[in-house]
Each structure stands twice: as C-alpha cells, then as structure tokens.
Write a protein that binds this DNA or RNA. Structure first.
Lengths: 346, 346
DNA sequence: CACTGATACTAAACCGGTTTTCTAACCCAG
DNA sequence: CTGGGTTAGAAAACCGGTTTAGTATCAGTG
C-alpha cells in the first residue's frame, strides 16, 4: 500500500467518457475535436489533477528536450572552476531560448563513458575531447549529436576553440619580453580523457605555443621545469608549494589555467613570498577572479560564455538538421597584462 | 529517407535468436540466463552497436535518474550569480554520489510554472519559494518531491535556510555601531515568484532584521531610502547610479546580495566615488568575489554549497522514502567585516 | 516411475503517452 | 436521393524497454 497514484490519460478518458485520443488532442491539438468536448475533457483533467507525464510524452515523441553537458571531472572540481561555470552559462542561455533544459552529467560510478551511455539527452556538449576516445564511439553508436569545446578538432567532431597555440605563444612572449628566463610551466594533465601523447589536445597545443616562443629566443624548458597538474585550485596550491621547495626558484610561473595560477598564488601568499616582486605568475582563461584577486593576474582572456553559446548553437543546428556553416569554430582571445607579471632583469 | 536507425532490443532478440526478455536479462540480470546465452547476446549487441535506450529504460522503470534545479530567474541572471552557482555545486556533488544527473531548468516560454509541468526529473530543488505559489501546487499534483532553499518554511515544504532575520540584524548592527546613520537599503524584489506582501520571504525577513536593529537605536528607514532591485549585477549598477544622483548621499549602502553590492561598487568606482572613504557598502552571501574585490566587501557569509548539499540530501531522503529528521534545516552564518565598511562620525 | 524443484527461457502485459488508420455522421452539390 | 468530402471521435499500433506469469526440460528423490 502506497500513496495515491497520479491519474493517467486513461483515467481522464474513462472519467470524461471520451477516448485517449480525444484527451491527447484536447491538450495538444484542440482543433481536432469540438470545442465542447475539449472543455469537458479539460475540466475532467483539472478536477482529477491530471498533468501529462513528461517522460511518457517525451518517450513517445522520441526526444528529451534537454541537452547534456558532460562534466570533464568529478563535480567538485568541474563546477569549482569559474571557467567551466561560464561555459555552462553560455550553454544555458541557448537552451533557454530553445525551450530546453540543461543536464549536467557527472561521471557515473567514476566512469564518464558509463555516464554517456545512460545520458537522457538529445545531444551532448563536452570539454577537451578527442575523437579516439571511448566516449566518442559511444556517442556515435547512440547517434547522439555532440559538439566539443576545447577539444581536438576532427572531421567527425564539431568544435569550439580559441587559437591555443598562438595564444600561448603570445603569452610566453610577453613573459619573455618582460625579461624572465627562469620559467616553470604548469601544464594540465587532461586526465579524465586523455590517452598519452595526444598531439593535438589543448594542453599539447599550449605547450607547443610556449615552446615556439622559447625556441625563438634560443631557450628551452628543462624537463624539471614542466609540472603537470589537475585543473583544480587544490592542485594549483600543491604546485605552488612544490615550486617553493626548490633550491632554485623560477622568476615566473606560467600556468595553463587561472584556477591553477591562483592556487599557486595562494600558496605563495601563505609562505609570504611576494607576487610579483619575488616571483611572477601568469595564467590562462581570465576568469572573473583573475581581475579582482590581489595582485591581479596576467592571463589569456578567452570568452568562455561565448564558447558555450557557440557550442550550444551549433548543437541545436545539428539537432534541427541544419547545415553547420563550419564545423570548427574559432573565436578570438586577448592577452591581458595585469599586476602579477613584473619586469625582470638579472 | 533518413539516417540509419539505432537497433532496439527487438533487433538484438531477432538477430541473436533469443527473446526480448533474454536480451534484457543479459544486460540487467545475467544470473537469470546461462552464461553462454549471455555471451551470445552480448556479442550480437556489440556487433550491431546496441546500447539500451536510456529514455525507454527510465520510462519503464518510472524514474529519471535526474533531479532538477529550478532556476529562479532567466538563465542569464541566475547563472551569473556566484551564489547560485555555489548552490548548484553543492547539489551537484550529492547528485554525483547518487548516480544522478542534475538538470538545470530555466523558465519555459517565460513561465516557471510551465517549466515545472514539463520537467523530466525525479525531484526538484527550488530557490526562494513559498507554498502558495502555482509552482508548488503543480509539484504537488505531479507528486514531485521538492525541497526549497531560501524559501518560506512551511509544513508542506522542506527547506534549507540560514537565520535571515538574525543575520540581517547583526549586519545592520555592525553598520550602525560603525557610526552610520544615513543608510540606504537595497532590497530584493524576488520578482520571479513573489506575490505582494509575503511576510516570510527571505527579503522580508532580512528587512525585518534591518528594521529591528534600527529601531533599537530609535532609527527608522525612510521610504525613499529603501530601493528594490533585481538580484543581478546590472541592476546593482543601476542602483549605484541612482544613489549617486541623490542630493543627499547616504554614508552606507546595505544590499541584500553581494552581486548587487558589487554592481553598486562598480558604479561608484566608475564615478570616482571612493569606497569606503566616501561611502561604505555591505552585502550579503559572501561570494568568492567579495573577498577578492578591491576594496573587499563586508558581508554575511552563508555556506551556499552546504545549502545545496543539504537540500539535495534531504531530497534524496524523500525519494528513498526515508523520514526527514527535520523538514526545516537551518545552518550557521557569519558576519565578515572587510574593507568596504568604514567607521563613520558626523 | 511419478513427483518436486530448479533452470533457462518465452509470451504477453505494462509503463503513459502520440499517431495512424478507420468509421460514423453530417453537409452539400448534382 | 446519391455520391463525395469533411468533421468528430474511436480503436489500435507504436515508442523500447522491464517484468510477470507461464512453459519446457532436466536433475534429483522417494
């Protein structure tokens, strides 16, 4: 014995004396039945407290009215990053105008692939993906349209990116022309998805950009001056501590993500190491905090909301079977110099 | 003629020579069939690229595996507020541990009620709700479990709150004991839901707290010193400008939300009005930006993530038909004094 | 050898809608 | 009065799974 059941379309049909079909029409296409019948059915529905079951309706119509955003990491980390939040915002506004909801999809039992298999959505937006991942093949066999942000562009995978290589080149150039030569780069592991040595992932592209700028000045990064970390504040802090422990401190830390750069700065502050006078820090993304943290953070500004918006719009175009004008969208970035980067001379 | 259809359970049944039932068991309860059969079916499924349709499965099992978060405003505003984002984060982590997704539900065709009627979720978390709203009755007739954050506690509505009245009292007391007497309060309209004169909405409670502190010192707010605005950065800016236009400027602005307070401060900065030397500002929520903006913002710190977490946990307890230890959860707040509030003497 | 119980599987009902197909009644023109 | 077209509504199929009820086979037991 359990609580009362909600009435179904059958109950309304029986109670009102009309057929299921009529009830369905009363709600979806009143022109198909007489005004009087429609009234009667509506009244009955109102009286019994009938609201059509959205799931049954969606199932019947083979749609979900929702698009999914695949969280690249565990929720705690994904949603802690303001960059991701901004992307979600961009996607959200587009969903809203299309009358869709936005489903945030965390890894299911630690498995992102599992999450994709079970995702009840009409399409997916992912971050940092490459074609040869399991996830992609799952999306493909599910015939689930998808667009990726910060992923590796590929024929079979529409993408939204900035010119990561060039942006990183510019950033590193700024650092170098400020006189820094003792540099530590904090790269991103891209752990969630990456297979080793993927040449065109965003972290790889950024690293290439850094290297290009360096080698143009006949510089080169030692192995030991490249750290790799998770894209989280905590791991950023850890990196900061790691760097302080070194016998030989760099004059500038170049992080591939603001959240990591800020984590770093927090550790520096905690250890009373002054930024930028003792050590400079630069980041990537230009999250809101970058501008308001003290000292403010030099970074690459990329329009995260816009990325989300573009990705979502592309996805809806696919859903509507419209042609994509171009499967690979690139949007502009800006280098923003702020206080955290100082000029340096030996 | 359109693209290839994905195979269904029937296709696998036919192709493998077994029944639908067997195929279903092969995926959900292998112990019910022989090892060999299971293998065969699985191979066939693999070969044909069969992945069970999540929607059909969920429909059959009368569940969604998703909980909904009802956006209190248009996406652009809701998701722009870091406070909301933090709440979402808290909800998200709980969803993750339960293997659920989190559906963000924007107003549908401008109507929140419409959105609730159509929400494909197992339960809802809302913000700032009161029992006598349409939405509540829709959730009730849908038999959709729900929990509200920052809403008006009621028998029929589990809620998560801080002691808004007391917190506001404390905040105003801090302002007053700093010597301010010329005060403008920026209240929240709570537009999305509110009927007029709801006595126990969060804005009302905060206003009561303010008034209590004031009247204890025989002070009272003029009508004209109470402004009402949307909970957005833009509207905060507008308020800031409005205040600057006045012949008689207040010495302190008390906003019911950090995002509004910060908007205000931005307008002040733009007009070269110094905070706090020329005018003090205090907010409410303690979003991350409050600490890192310059000058840093005096505010009431409330654990937004924790609110989300608690609400989600309560909701899952309802879904699992466990008893709630208490339907109304209150969690502690802290007053945080920072630079934006200065001492004042006439 | 008949009876019992377990095993391995199938047929059919079911979840709650939408949609296609069909029928009865009615209207109007020829 | 008849044939053709329209309208209002009903019956049944369908979406793609899960689950209940039932059947056939086989092993073990008294």
């Amino acid at each position: 014995m359990q609580g009362p059941k909600r009435p179904t379309i059958n109950d309304i049909a029986r109670e009102s004396g009309f057929s299921k079909t009529a009830v369905s029409f009363a709600f979806n296409d009143p022109s198909r039945i007489s005004e009087k019948t429609c009234q009667l059915i509506r009244e009955t529905a109102e009286r019994l407290g009938y609201i059509p079951d959205p799931m049954a309706r969606n199932f019947s119509l083979r749609r979900h009215l929702s698009i999914g955003f695949l969280l690249p990491q565990v929720v705690q980390y994904s949603l802690q990053n303001p960059y991701t939040m901004q992307v979600i915002q961009g996607i959200g506004t587009v969903c809203e105008t299309h009358g869709y909801t936005l489903t945030l999809i965390p890894p299911l039992h630690k498995s992102i692939t599992e999450a994709v298999r079970n995702a009840a959505v009409d399409g997916l937006i992912t971050m940092g993906m490459q074609v040869d991942m399991d996830i992609v093949s799952v999306m493909q066999t599910r015939l689930l349209p998808y667009v990726t942000i910060d992923g590796t562009p590929d024929e079979r995978m529409p993408s939204v990116n900035i010119q990561d290589e060039q942006a990183s080149y510019d950033l590193m150039n700024l650092v170098l022309s400020s006189g820094h030569t003792e540099i530590v780069v904090i790269a991103l592991s891209n752990d969630a998805f990456a297979k080793e040595g993927e040449a065109d992932s965003v972290p790889s592209k950024r690293m290439r950009g850094f290297n290009r700028a360096l080698s143009e000045r006949n510089l080169q990064l030692d192995e030991q001056n490249i750290l790799v970390c998770e894209c989280t504040l905590e791991d950023g802090k850890r990196m900061g501590k790691l760097i302080l422990q070194r016998a030989h401190r760099p004059t500038c830390v170049v992080a591939m993500s603001d959240i990591v750069a800020i984590g770093c700065m927090l550790s520096f502050k905690e250890a009373f190491v002054q930024v930028p006078s003792e050590i400079s820090v630069v980041g990537f993304d230009d999250i809101d905090e970058a501008a308001c943290i003290n000292p403010s953070l030099t970074t690459v500004s990329q329009p995260a909301k816009e990325k989300g918006r573009l990705a979502a719009e592309a996805l809806f175009r696919i859903l509507n079977k419209e042609e994509l004008t171009s499967a690979h969208m690139e949007i502009p970035y800006t280098i923003i110099r702020r206080e955290s980067l100082s000029d340096h001379q030996d």
